[in-house]
């Protein structure tokens, strides 16, 4: 455990060092150009200092991003349009709605696939094929079309999240519901258990480990969906909008801070499911 932590911290430290190095290399040119234009010469240490503190650097240094995040979270009111928490909240709401709908759809599909051979044979190939389609490409269309029929705001974004998150859940749950072996199923048969009883007493409990694993993937996918869904709405609100606005105006620090917050949000959400997984599996005695 300790060994792992040290290894991870070393890698993270190396990444930060590389980041600083890259920031220096990539921002150097601008500083030199400025100096040349002004007709002054600069020493290396002056260049280094400047590359760490430019307003629109090619690559902002980590501390610049952190201070930007600090400024836009702690020092801004949550209701302010410039607060990252406000934007993250918007993204979070469509993420969660899409995640819920997607998971429910996935579980329902999985149950019907496990119970109906016709469903299995007709739908399963298409579910798999649907994932080879780069659905994010359709995101702008879904938003615009739903807008045209009068649905706007949360729901269109959640639809995209739903599409992205139903697949891992459906596939994982089909596997999970089929996890009980022949002997266990035969045992239920000897009790003359109905399909419903078999589902509740055997299939669903045995599918739990699969469910949580796929929920984690679904959550991550759902967040990506929400962020992409915010792009074509004209950059109004949400982390995706911050990304787009930042790229319009060349505000690299803003892009990076939105990116890091999205990463933190994803990590927290996935971890939350992990905690839920531990509690559930422990209670069911599946985890020692």
């Amino acid at each position: 455990m300790m060994k792992n932590l040290i290894a991870v911290l070393t890698v993270v430290f190396a990444i930060i060092v590389i980041w600083y190095g890259a920031a220096f290399m990539m921002n150097k040119q601008w500083t030199l150009d400025q100096a040349e234009r002004a007709g002054t010469t600069v020493t290396t240490s002056e260049v280094f200092k400047d590359t760490m503190a430019q307003e629109r650097p090619q690559l902002p240094a980590p501390h610049q991003v952190i201070s930007e995040i600090w400024k836009t979270t702690v020092e801004k009111k949550i209701t302010s349009k410039r607060s990252l928490i406000y934007h993250a909240g918007i993204t979070l709401s469509s993420t969660s709605l899409g995640f819920l709908m997607g998971s429910l759809l996935g579980i329902t599909l999985a149950i019907s696939i496990v119970h109906s051979r016709a469903m299995d044979l007709s739908v399963m190939p298409w579910i798999i094929a649907s994932q080879t389609i780069p659905i994010l490409a359709v995101a702008p269309m879904i938003i615009v079309v739903l807008n045209a029929v009068g649905i706007s705001g949360l729901v269109p974004k959640a639809m995209i999240s739903m599409y992205l998150s139903f697949f891992p859940v459906a596939v994982g749950m089909v596997k999970g519901l089929r996890a009980p072996d022949t002997m266990q199923l035969d045992l239920m048969k000897t009790y003359r258990a109905s399909a419903w009883q078999t589902l509740i007493k055997l299939r669903l409990p045995s599918s739990m480990p699969y469910l949580f694993t796929s929920l984690k993937i679904a959550m991550a996918a759902s967040l990506v969906g929400a962020i992409i869904g915010e792009l074509p709405t004209g950059a109004v609100a949400g982390l995706g909008a911050r990304l787009l606005a930042g790229s319009y105006y060349g505000q690299t620090i803003q892009i990076w801070s939105a990116l890091i917050s999205a990463a933190v949000l994803a990590a927290v959400l996935v971890m939350l499911i992990g905690v839920l997984q531990n509690i559930t599996l422990k209670r069911m005695g599946m985890l020692r």
Partner: peptide
């Protein structure tokens, strides 16, 4: 791998 890596797109387009 679990992060919304796609968000890096605007930065790379800039670079």
């Amino acid at each position: 791998a679990a992060l919304p890596v796609i968000g890096i797109a605007p930065i790379l387009v800039m670079w």
